[in-house]
Design a binder for these strands. Structure first.
Lengths: 167, 167
DNA sequence: TTGGAATGTCAACAAGGCTGACATAAACTG
DNA sequence: CAGTTTATGTCAGCCTTGTTGACATTCCAA
């Protein structure tokens, strides 16, 4: 019964439960590869994946507020605060009180922060580049289409906003 | 300089650093969506994502040994053991001593385990199905090609082996 | 001037990674 | 066949990173 739809008129083989399960497992294994290289670099320092994410998005949107970062990362302020505190203490991130609204803290990478960001994203991009090159442009377009459709709609908007601010 | 390769003869626009970074962020946001529905179901019970993964792969390969599961999941035996113990105590998983090699334990879902597996995978497949349907078959093929290329080669083999054992 | 929003801090806790120490069964070796 | 090694699984304890709740501070805005 589960695969009954395959027998319908259209070519919907790609929607069988077996295909969906393969997609699920592909996501699982691929995400492991996706995070493997930065994780390796970070364990040598005293940092983890949470630090990488913070550094990535501060680099992506310099001057972002803590609250904005919270929305992007989808964690609690207490959790983010612990990460930010160590990054600021270690001189990788600078926090500046806002001029218009002095409640806000605007976050920037220091030179050391940029260096680490570069190191991490170089590693991650290298893997992504190899995967993209092996797969070819059409596959890459499909990859992005499916991923975008898999996001919660709120995150879809965040993603699009970031994308458009970039290039 | 970073995007200099875009000027080369071929159409390699999809390999610019900006495109790679968008791919990275797409993975990040999409993975959040990917795990959101099962996570919601699991927090109502006393389980987490680790339990879901164990249940998924025991269902996928009934009778699998602990060691085999360890390789698939990429965690330590101690970490997996904690999860398996609670699943066995709660009557979702059964562990049988091997007949040929009595050191091994073979793992099976009970009826209750199957019920939970069904509930979790229904939710996850529903999202995947919607994404696949929105994206269309060509995009889905590309999605899988890129994900496969992003895996560590060892996981690529594991993934392929699972895939071929399935359908 | 008072209420609400943004930020930060402290404390306590849970999930799920990790390492180290160890028990047992099986397999190998002299 | 006794002794050693290997494979497997378990227990105890630690770390990161997520969570809630309570609360202080600062400032904007009605």
């Amino acid at each position: 019964m589960a695969d009954g739809r395959a027998a319908s008129g259209e070519n919907l083989l790609y929607l069988t439960d077996e295909q969906l399960r393969q997609g699920i497992e592909a996501m699982f294994f691929a995400y492991r590869g996706f995070t493997a290289d930065p994780d390796r670099i970070l364990t040598d320092m005293a940092y983890g994946r949470a630090h990488h994410r913070a550094i990535h998005f501060i680099n992506r949107a310099p001057g972002t507020t803590v609250n904005n970062l919270l929305n992007i990362l989808g964690v609690t302020k207490q959790s983010l605060n612990r990460v930010l505190r160590t990054l600021i203490e270690d001189g990788l991130v600078e926090s500046h009180v806002g001029t218009a609204d002095k409640r806000e803290r605007h976050l920037y990478l220091t030179e050391a922060g940029h260096a680490l960001e570069q190191q991490l994203s170089d590693a991650q991009r290298a893997r992504m580049r190899a995967a993209f090159r092996d797969a070819g442009p059409d596959a890459v377009a499909g990859f992005r289409t499916v991923l975008e459709a898999m996001m919660d709609s709120e995150m879809q908007r965040t993603y699009t906003r970031l994308k458009e601010s970039g290039a």
